[in-house]
């Protein structure tokens, strides 16, 4: 007997929650307990009074499982609302990465040139290293990081995806 896998689709969710102790554990735990994927998860408070947090989750699921994920999230007591940005339509997704590169000579020059192409800013420099700050969609950052690998990549830190709908209305 073999275990079958289902066809999955990538969705980006915005989850608005009360900024209370344990809320992130509740959400992350729900995903593990029910066997859902988390590809990326970011969280920070977004309201003036620090009472509300926005969690952006990127997950892959089949269509019925996606409906379940949203229903299960909405069932949690501290959750205000869940928005499936992917289903909603046009939206902007961005990620920020800090990329440390070390090297000398041609590698150093090539790293700077590539950074320029990718509109990465130098936020730290020594005679033997740079730290670049780059933002964009995940694909762009993936590509930038893989290019940096060839010219002396030391370390990467990424924020994970944040996303917001296009147009004048809140999602």
């Amino acid at each position: 007997m073999h275990i079958k896998q289902e066809q999955q689709e990538r969705h980006t969710l915005a989850v608005i929650v009360d900024n209370e102790a344990g809320v992130l554990a509740r959400i992350a735990g729900l995903f593990t307990a029910r066997g859902y994927n988390i590809e990326s998860l970011t969280v920070t408070d977004i309201s003036e009074d620090d009472l509300i947090s926005r969690i952006t989750i990127v997950t892959s699921a089949s269509a019925p499982m996606m409906e379940q994920i949203i229903a299960q999230l909405e069932r949690l007591v501290p959750v205000h609302k869940v928005v499936d940005l992917t289903a909603l339509g046009p939206h902007v997704e961005r990620e920020l990465a800090l990329v440390k590169v070390a090297g000398a000579g041609d590698h150093r020059i090539e790293a700077l040139r590539l950074a320029d192409v990718y509109r990465a800013r130098v936020v730290d420099a020594t005679t033997t290293s740079f730290v670049f700050e780059v933002t964009g969609g995940s694909d762009k950052i993936d590509t930038f990081v893989s290019l940096m690998r060839e010219v002396g990549l030391v370390e990467v830190a990424r924020t994970g995806i944040v996303a917001i709908s296009r147009g004048k209305d809140a999602a």
Partner: peptide, 11 residues
């Protein structure tokens, strides 16, 4: 009364 019970296993 529980939306997560709907379409969970049976459409």
């Amino acid at each position: 009364i529980d939306r997560s019970s709907m379409n969970k296993t049976v459409h």
